[in-house]
Amino acid sequence: MLLYFEGLSSLTYFGRIVDSACITIRDFTMMTDFIFSGVNLAVTTPFNAKGKIDYARFEELIEQYLAAGVHGFVLSSGTGMHVYLSKEESKELVAFGAKIINGRARVIAQTSALLADEVVERTRHARDCGVDGVMVLPPFFEGPTDDQGIIDFYSTVSEAGVPIIGYNVPQAVGVKVTPSLFKLLCQIPNFVSVKDSSGDLTAQTALVRTGVPTLNGADPLAPFALFAGAAGLIWGGANMAPKTCVALAKAAAERRWDNVQEIWQSLAPVMSLIWQSDYVQSVYAGAEIMGYGAGNPRRPLARLAEDKFGALRDALAPLIEREASTL
């Protein structure tokens, strides 16, 4: 079957992708029993004019995204400015968000921190707030990079007793989750998955082939990752077009690949654009254009430069009508 996807490559044979991943369409199944399947929205954190968290707006956004059908929320995500929130702000945000969502969608809290003890503290707090899982970066900023050091770290976090999603983003933290390490990590109690944001489809399909649920975190790879067997999506770009992103995930779960292709043609231009640079600023700006505004990112990040707004609006143009009409 010949499929055309803008934004990643010109002509792509799914059969060729399948061959490289050593699986076949017959073997491919969506892991619908996996608790974190579908679209898990790495939701933006709204800020007011003084740079403080705008909780009233956050509640409004949550309701908008629930109405759009998102399956889960990642609170204090990277897109939600986790690294620029204090520990107390992050904990308060998780408690507030979990209370508002109140079981209407899954809740994942990012509890990453430099100190292992702080990660455990944040994770226990998230557990007590009733989250369904936590997302945790491996040790970073001169932390251990050997497999045993990573295993020991996640073993410590597992003591909090909540499902853990690891985070593979080697370009940012210098630690690569390989298939062999992934298998070892999944022997740790409560370690259930990894979010792969490497942006490397070949590397991600290698994780998928372990048989352990793998979550795609690279926006431009969404349909390809689902076809290759990713169990779900953690998606920051979905802040801009949640209905369309949910429709894509639903079509993929039902193996309606022609529909996936058609939907992706609307999403691909913007998902490719925002991945190239200024990701968080672009998501905030694009969400505002599409009616899901969260204010400006928090300093030191600034509002997207004006000379980049035109290209972003152009990339979003195919989504405006679709997003308004998608149920």
Rank of each mutant, 00 (worst) to 15 (best):
V283M: 09
A105W: 10
G72F: 12
T44V: 08
K50V: 00
S9F: 07
E121K: 02
I150N: 11
S197K: 11
I234R: 10
L8Q: 04
R322F: 00
S90W: 00
A203K: 03
P242S: 13
D54H: 15
Y292A: 13
A67I: 01
T29G: 02
V208N: 06
S155D: 10
E288N: 12
T145M: 08
G310C: 10
N40H: 06
E121H: 07
S325E: 05
T210E: 02
T145G: 08
N239K: 11
E142W: 13
Q276H: 12
E118R: 10
V260C: 06
G69A: 02
I289V: 15
D132L: 11
G51I: 02
Q171N: 12
T79G: 12
A42R: 09
R16Q: 14
L248R: 11
F141T: 14
R57V: 15
L75K: 00
A228R: 01
F28N: 01
P139I: 10
V136F: 11
G295F: 05
S282M: 07
S158H: 02
A249Q: 12
Q187L: 04
S158T: 01
A238T: 07
T326Y: 11
V157H: 05
L41Y: 12
S37A: 10
L185Q: 00
I289Y: 15
S266Y: 00
T326L: 10
G217R: 10
G291F: 15
M81K: 11
G38V: 13
I188H: 01
R106C: 06
G133E: 02
A126L: 02
W264H: 08
Y55M: 02
Q64T: 07
S20V: 00
I100D: 05
E288F: 13
S158W: 01
V173M: 04
G7R: 09
D54T: 13
T111Y: 09
L114Y: 11
T111I: 07
G166E: 00
F58V: 06
R16I: 13
A287S: 15
H82N: 10
D152V: 13
G15V: 05
G286T: 08
L66E: 03
A228P: 01
P213G: 04
F14P: 15
I35L: 13
A247N: 00
T12Y: 09
E262R: 14
L233M: 15
I53L: 08
A98P: 09
V260K: 01
A268V: 06
L85R: 04
V194D: 02
A218G: 12
D146G: 15
V169H: 13
E323C: 14
L327Q: 09
T32Y: 12
T12Q: 08
V246E: 00
Y13P: 13
D147W: 14
N40T: 12
F5Q: 05
T32L: 14
R127L: 06
L184Q: 14
S158L: 01
G291W: 15
A247Q: 02
A225H: 08
G217M: 06
P170N: 02
L226S: 05
G97C: 09
